[in-house]
Amino acid sequence: MRFLYLLRRPPYSGSLAAEAIDSILVAGVFDQRVSVLFKDDGVLQLLKDQQGQLLGHRSVNKMLAALPEYEIEELFVCARSLAERALSLDQLSLPVQVLDEVGQQTLIAAQNVVMND
């Protein structure tokens, strides 16, 4: 089955982002085709050099870096969300594909399941 995780929350609003990543990793263990779309504040999860331990949390960018270890390599980011925050790809901690709106439409339409953070 095709699973898409639609991540739209910033990394440290409580444990929501970290818990969503835990769920993604389990989907990876289940041998499903898993992709992730970072959109809105979700793109902030990808910023480099986070130090979540200052807030008593795991660093979300480090957890995301585990995705390729679970063979989850289809990582997408919303072009508009990056532009609205004046972010460029070199500020992100992982290689991601930038998708415009048509690209996101196509991605979502291809899914069986869309999960949320």
Partner: peptide
């Protein structure tokens, strides 16, 4: 090392990969 890099304990598959 895996944990210090990713802050998650590896499941079986990523363990084998590493």
């Amino acid at each position: 090392r895996f944990y210090s890099q990713f802050e998650v304990s590896p499941a079986m598959r990523p363990l084998v990969k590493q």
